[in-house]
Design a binder for these strands. Structure first.
Lengths: 107, 107
DNA sequence: TAAGATTACATAGAACTGCAAGGTATGTCA
DNA sequence: TGACATACCTTGCAGTTCTATGTAATCTTA
């Protein structure tokens, strides 16, 4: 199944917020987490994710800090901010509301 | 609650398809139906809806025909095509899948 | 019966934006 | 040593969206 562009766009933010609500993560890992979570249906390009992360940070939903893998390679981790937590809650509610509207109409 | 732009964009198509799956309708009425269904939270501008309807028709999901209200005023009705029916089903599945992913992550 | 509100549809194009493409760099391992 | 995986970044424009604007018929009410 190919997910519609609109839906992918609309789901990316809540998905990232959700993932970060479980534990801090970094760009490259988030891509893989999404890939697994979706059973391979969502395959984000990295060039698509990083701008989203930057935008979310600018909005104050997430905060970044540099970390180090045990390999020595540096990673830019993100953590959910307080604002991001409330944003996540709101977006989940919105999804729920729209899902209900759409499925309520099902014959 | 202000619905995020992305979500509004992603939901407009399945919403319209859903409404038309119940019964044929026309632009002006669809706006009101969405307004009611959402308990006043979604307030589409007409200038926003008509282009969407045209796009959907171009994609073959809906078909238009001119009708007449009992008042004598002409109306452009839309009906769901076979293609639109299968598109609706797909989009509903996609919504479901993403909703599940997002809510499964909830702590 | 005139003015204002409502119903109803249409479209150009300004304004926005998403993301593909292209770039850099380090670690691993055969 | 070179191929592959890991890891991050940004620009630019192709494509989209919907605001602003226009038209016109019908209804209401004073």
């Amino acid at each position: 199944m190919i997910l519609s562009k609109d839906l992918v766009a609309a789901s990316s933010t809540p998905l990232i917020l959700s993932i970060l609500s479980i534990e801090d993560s970094y760009g490259y890992a988030i891509i893989q987490q999404v890939h697994e979570l979706s059973d391979g249906e969502l395959k984000w390009a990295d060039g698509m994710l990083y701008p989203i992360l930057h935008r979310m940070e600018k909005k104050g939903w997430i905060e970044s800090f540099w970390g180090q893998a045990n390999t020595g390679r540096k990673r830019k981790y993100y953590r959910l901010s307080a604002q991001g937590t409330s944003e996540l809650k709101q977006q989940q509610e919105q999804w729920q509301k729209l899902s209900n509207m759409i499925s309520k109409l099902e014959k």
